[in-house]
Structure formats: structure tokens, C-alpha cells
Write a protein that binds this DNA or RNA. Structure first.
Length: 513
DNA sequence: AAAAAAC
């Protein structure tokens, strides 16, 4: 009986949804014939001008579920100067850029003006596009409001408003901005609203800003795609030990490893690990929010194009980014919030492909690992090979310590748990680390110039922030305290979390009831 | 113990 729905959905093709011929032809050219559940559920309503509340994780085909009907509806009418016809809000710059790419791909038969309003780049070009009249405006909230305050932007011509990744916006403290923006747009508009989870703050927002929305919900499963092999890897807790563990792990996986994202919890760690990997001749790039925007884009593009094999990243890359075919995810740090784990490893094992994830774990991480296992409802197996002891027992790459020379040389392994270890941790400053490479460090052989430049950019932009009074410190304290109630509540929620960007196999079978 | 976003 429930299989009715399944077969009905699976039989559905894009031609059944009411999209225009121009859009359909672009979809066909892109190689798609069958809509995903969220697309099948949302597109017909969106085409009728109804408000849609889409509850769907990244990776369910969500973006196309608003891009395609919007393109169809935009075929009538024209944009006027400084008065965009549609507006899409995204939480991060990369996601905004990704949505723009979707509009370009599916809008190739349309002559639409698309403007991307994100921070970190100059206003000039954005201003020009607004002046020319934008059919589609894709923005992060901060830069959008900035443009508006400068009087370059009128929002009262917006016919369709899309709010994407609403729960993440909540998490990032964007909700007040979102409310302000919603209030600037005429209530006659159509609103398409997407969120992976529905915490109370988000429900309140939808009650306030949506009119009789059609609710389309894709899946409630709080699980990780089964095509991902997950392993925990023991490591010493000192940075140089973790780096060594990671290198050994990468080498051990070499045969199967096509490319990998390596997640760190903090931006400084991203920088350090990135430089360390370059020093060890790994073909690596870096991505985090304090890098300048050009370097961010370039790194991502190079990784996507296969010019970089490794991407060291903060959680800016954990959700939503569409990087097809990542074979490995390494968690250099165990994520502090369990749901981030699911997002991170969801970068691999997509579209039914096999993927592997390894999480480097130290003694201090146990409770976070426990929380992750509770969330995914599974124990994660330990990796077979014992990579963690190599360094400690052989001591070959241990840092030279100034005083107290080779404290542990000749000592028995059983000593490992003694107090000396803890004390040593505190002394392990960055200077001691053997491979925190200086910035001028010659870069490993690089295939092409673009890549070389991206790396330089990244190093430079990292470097600009180095030294005393670095931006990390300044920002941390200077920023106004933002309440983010979403975080705490979400943990004890139903635990609904996201997957990769392609639809995992088990989600193609429509979630019902 | 973090990260993300406007200048």
C-alpha cells in the first residue's frame, strides 16, 4: 500500500512537473530525467505561486527544487534597475556561489541577469549588475543589507523570495537579519523556505512570513549514508603526533584515495596543517573563512577540478558544498558538535558511490565520539592498523626539545600514561613542532600555474592575519555576543541531520508517512 | 574547545 507512493514518484519525470520547455531542455542537457522527492514535491506548487516549506537536508536536490520553477516563472516579465525580481538568501558565500552556478546551468536558455551579492569582494561589479537590473539576486545577508543601506537596492519589486538553510542561519545568528529583510519585501511575494530541521525559532519564522505554505518533507532519518565506511583512528594528542597519524593514514589509503577533505575544528589548525602537508609534499589546498575570497574560490575550484588532491578545511566546507566524488574524508579533529560529523562525512559516499571516512581520535575526544555514536545510532569501528604508536616508540620525528633533552628516550612504552605526558603537552608550543613550515617553504611540484597562485594567495591571506593581534583574537572578543539558542536545543532534538549533496541511494526510495 | 557573516 505504501509502495503506491514509491512507484508513483519513481515513475515521475521532469516533463510531468509543469516546467517550461526552456528549463526542461537545460535539465535534459544536464543529464537528469527523474526528479528527486523534494523536487517532485515542491516544483508543481512553486510553479503555481504557492508558498513552500521544504524540510530537506542538503543533498536532496533541494537547490534545483527552487531554481527550476523560478526560471520558469521568470520567463514572463523583465527586471528594472535596482529592483531585483527574485531574491535567494544563503548562509555562506560558497553556497551562494553554488546557487549562482545552478542558475547559470539551468538558465542557459534564458537571458537572465544574475547578481551575486556576497562579502569579501568589491562592491563595484555588484553595483553594476544591480544598476542593470537583476532578475535573480543571490546573497548572503550581511552584504545584501549593506547594499540596501547604501541605497543601491530596492526590495519592493521582489516577486519570489527564497530562504535556504534556515536552521543554519539560525545557528549563525542571522535570524534578525532575515526578519529585517523579509519585512522589506512586499507580502504579495511568494516565499520558498528550506530548512533541514524545524526548531521552534524556525517554526515561528515560518508562521510569521509564510502564507498557507505547502509542506514538503523529504526524510527524517538521522543516519549516515550506508555507502560510507567509517573508522576511528587512535592518535597521540599533540599536534605533531596527529599530523603524523594523518600522513600515515593518507599513505596507507593511497591506492584507494582519489581525493580527500580534511576537516579541522579551528581556522588556525587549518592553516598549520595545510602548511605542514605542503612541506611534506602533499598536494593540498586550504579553505576557511578568514582566507580572502579569491583564494577561497580558487581553492575550491581547484579541488573540484582535481588539481588539488587534498583540501584542508574548516566547517565552512562541511555542509551543502557540491563537490562530487570525494573518495575520503578525514577528521583531523573530532567535531565538537555531533551533527557536524554527519555533515562532514556526508561529503563522501554520495550518489551511491563508496566513500571512506577516518576520524583521528585522542583520549580527550572520548565524550565527543560517544555523542556522535549516539546520534548516528551506531558504534564506529576502530581502524585496524595501529598508526598511532609509530612516532612515540621510534621517536624519529619527535620535536627537538630545548631543555630536558630526549626525555622519553629509552623509556618503556608502559610509561605512556604517566604524568609527564600531560606536562609535556603544555610545553609543546608551536615552535617545537617540527613541521610548522615557514611560509616561504617551497611548495611541492605543482601541475599548473593557477594552482600555484591559489596556494600563494592562501598563504598570503593567512599570513596577513598572522602575528600578534591576529584577527582571530580581535574578533573573538570584539564581536557582540550573539545568542544562538538553536544550538543547544538541536542536540536533544530528533537528531535530523544532513547527507551529501547527491541523493543517497536510500533516499531515492521516497520517504513516506 | 569552533565556525560562519559587513565594513
Amino acid at each position: 500500500m505504501s509502495s503506491d507512493t514509491t512507484t508513483a514518484q519513481e515513475a515521475l519525470t521532469f516533463t510531468d512537473l509543469g516546467l517550461s520547455p526552456k528549463v526542461l531542455s537545460a535539465v535534459t542537457d544536464a543529464g537528469y530525467t527523474k526528479p528527486t522527492p523534494i523536487q517532485a514535491g515542491a516544483i508543481p506548487h512553486a510553479l503555481l505561486g504557492k508558498d513552500v516549506l521544504g524540510i530537506a537536508q542538503t543533498g536532496t536536490g533541494k537547490t534545483a527544487s527552487f531554481v527550476l520553477p523560478m526560471l520558469t516563472r521568470l520567463e514572463k516579465g523583465r527586471a528594472r534597475a535596482r529592483m531585483p525580481r527574485t531574491l535567494i538568501l544563503e548562509p555562506t558565500r560558497e553556497l551562494a556561489a553554488q546557487v549562482e552556478e545552478n542558475f547559470i546551468k539551468y538558465g542557459k536558455n534564458h537571458k537572465l541577469n544574475i547578481a551575486l551579492l556576497i562579502g569579501g569582494v568589491s562592491f563595484d561589479e555588484q553595483d553594476k549588475k544591480l544598476e542593470r537590473g537583476a532578475d535573480v539576486l543571490i546573497a548572503t545577508p550581511g552584504r545584501l543589507l549593506d547594499h540596501r543601506e547604501r541605497g543601491k537596492l530596492l526590495l519592493n519589486g521582489v516577486e519570489i523570495l527564497v530562504i535556504d538553510e534556515a536552521d543554519r542561519m539560525l545557528d549563525m545568528g542571522f535570524i534578525p537579519d532575515i526578519e529585517r529583510i523579509c519585512e522589506m519585501i512586499p507580502f504579495t511575494r511568494q516565499t520558498l523556505f528550506f530548512s533541514a530541521t524545524m526548531p521552534p525559532e524556525i517554526t515561528k519564522l515560518t508562521e510569521k512570513f509564510l502564507h498557507a505554505p505547502v509542506r514538503v518533507e523529504v526524510s527524517k532519518a538521522a543516519s549516515t549514508a550506508t555507502s560510507i565506511t567509517q573508522r576511528l583512528v587512535k592518535s597521540g594528542r599533540k599536534p605533531w603526533e596527529k599530523r603524523e597519524t594523518l600522513r600515515n593514514l593518507i599513505k596507507a589509503e593511497d591506492a584507494e584515495l582519489k581525493n580527500a577533505i580534511i576537516f579541522c575544528n579551528r581556522k588556525v589548525e587549518v592553516s598549520e596543517l595545510f602548511r605542514s602537508l605542503l612541506k611534506h609534499d602533499f598536494d593540498a589546498g586550504a579553505l576557511h573563512g578568514d582566507m580572502d575570497q579569491r583564494a577561497r574560490m580558487q581553492m575550491l575550484a581547484n579541488f573540484r577540478d582535481g588539481k588539488l588532491r587534498y583540501l584542508v578545511a574548516s566547517d565552512v566546507a562541511a555542509r551543502g558544498l557540491d563537490i562530487p566524488d570525494v573518495s575520503h574524508v578525514f577528521n583531523y579533529d573530532v567535531p565538537i558538535h555531533a551533527e557536524d560529523y554527519v555533515h562532514r562525512i556526508g561529503r563522501t559516499g554520495r550518489a551511491g558511490r563508496a566513500g571512506k571516512s577516518f576520524t583521528i581520535t585522542t583520549r580527550a575526544d572520548t565524550k565527543y565520539v560517544d555523542a556522535i555514536e549516539r546520534l548516528i545510532g551506531n558504534k564506529i569501528e576502530w581502524h585496524d592498523g595501529d598508526l598511532s604508536t609509530v612516532t612515540e616508540s621510534e621517536g624519529e620525528e619527535s620535536p627537538r626539545r630545548g631543555r630536558g633533552a630526549p626525555r622519553r628516550a629509552g623509556r618503556k612504552d608502559e610509561d605512556r600514561k604517566d604524568r609527564g605526558e600531560r606536562k609535556r603537552d603544555r610545553h609543546a608550543t608551536r615552535d617545537e613542532t617540527p613541521d610548522a613550515a615557514p611560509v616561504e617553504q617551497p611548495v611541492a611540484e605543482v601541475a599548473d600555474i593557477a594552482e600555484r597562485r591559489a596556494r600563494k594567495d592562501a598563504i598570503r591571506s593567512e599570513n596577513e592575519r598572522k602575528g600578534p593581534g591576529s584577527r582571530h583574537e580581535q574578533r573573538g572578543d570584539a564581536r557582540p555576543q550573539r545568542d544562538r539558542p538553536g544550538r543547544h536545543r538541536q542536540e536533544e532534538d530528533d537528531g535530523t541531520v544532513g547527507f551529501g549533496d547527491d541523493v543517497p541511494a536510500f533516499m531515492r526510495i521516497v520517504a513516506k508517512v
